[in-house]
Write a protein that binds this DNA or RNA. Structure first.
Length: 275
DNA sequence: AAACTGGCCTGGACGC
DNA sequence: TGCGTCCAGGCCAGTT
């Protein structure tokens, strides 16, 4: 479940290791992970290229090559980039190997095979990358912008915040934490939010994402960064995965409910459904 | 246009 | 012990 802070941490750990490296060979163990182009073209376009930059947009990782192509990966649930010495044993879930000319390797693994990789010369061809909503930590994501985004919406808050076309980068963990901090029940609809609640939510989203990055991400199940290091934000979580445990604010037991087929953790006292 | 539903995928937890 | 069932939750396609 890498979300914005985890993906940012992966990019940060990848960057100093792979920029200026030359790709000498590419081995694809599980073809399913390569969304486009077809396998032969994928390899041909990669071999001989030098990596010039590594960036993040939403939960997408964008690796720039000197032939002006982009290697774009979305880790989805269990994806993992690992930067290793060539000699290191290949893991059970390592599915794409990028071998560099200096005998180091970048590996892309994925326990659940949800991970998708694209090699494109136009970012619009990489999944929904160019349809994403604003970056919540950017300057452009102002309170005024957030108010304008919310104004036409009437869906429930948890699915809305998970919608990457609405805001980029949030997943289940950081949505639940944001809604708790702002005192908003995950089933509330967007049209019932007061101006004060929208203001709190805007701040809370930025707060939890910044905290997540500071802690190098949340490691609940599988997540580690590109050098294999786990994050520590799981120790700071207020509601996520704390069903039946006491709320740190009021002592009430945290509950779990289903919203849009997904779990949502909340404090029934701090996040009432009825006004 | 926005909202919602089901499907993809597999390891691990649980019940019998 | 082992089998079946459910859950985790990223996104996407299809439908309303």
């Amino acid at each position: 479940m890498p979300e914005l802070p985890e993906v940012q941490t992966v990019v940060d750990t990848l960057k100093p290791n792979i920029i200026d490296k030359k790709i000498e060979a590419v081995e694809v163990i599980e073809e399913k992970l390569v969304e486009k182009p077809r396998l032969e073209e994928f390899k041909d376009l990669l071999v001989g290229q030098i990596i010039t930059n590594v960036k993040r947009r939403g939960k997408y990782i964008i690796i720039e090559l000197d032939n002006s192509y982009y290697l774009v990966s979305h880790l989805r649930m269990t994806g993992r980039f690992s930067y290793v010495d060539d000699g290191q044993e290949i893991g059970d879930y390592d599915y794409i190997l990028f071998k560099f000319s200096d005998n180091e390797e970048l590996r892309l693994g994925s326990k659940r095979k949800f991970t998708r990789t694209y090699l494109v010369d136009d970012l619009a061809d990489a999944g929904s990358l160019t349809d994403l909503g604003p970056e919540p930590l950017s300057e452009e994501f102002t309170l005024d912008m957030f108010k304008e985004l919310i104004a036409p919406r009437r869906g429930r808050m948890k699915p809305l915040l998970l919608n990457q076309k609405f805001i980029a980068g949030l997943g289940s963990i950081y949505v639940d934490e944001s809604l708790f901090i702002s005192g908003i029940h995950p089933m509330r609809t967007a049209d019932t939010l007061t101006e004060e609640e929208i203001t709190k939510l805007h701040g809370a989203i930025r707060q939890v994402l910044a905290e997540g990055i500071e802690h190098r991400g949340t490691t609940k199940w599988d997540y580690v960064d590109a050098s294999g290091q786990a994050g520590s934000y799981q120790d700071e979580l207020r509601v996520y995965d704390r069903e039946e445990e006491e709320c740190f604010e009021c002592g009430t037991k945290i509950q779990r409910t289903k919203v849009g087929g997904r779990s949502a953790y909340f404090c029934p006292q701090c996040q009432p459904l009825e006004e």
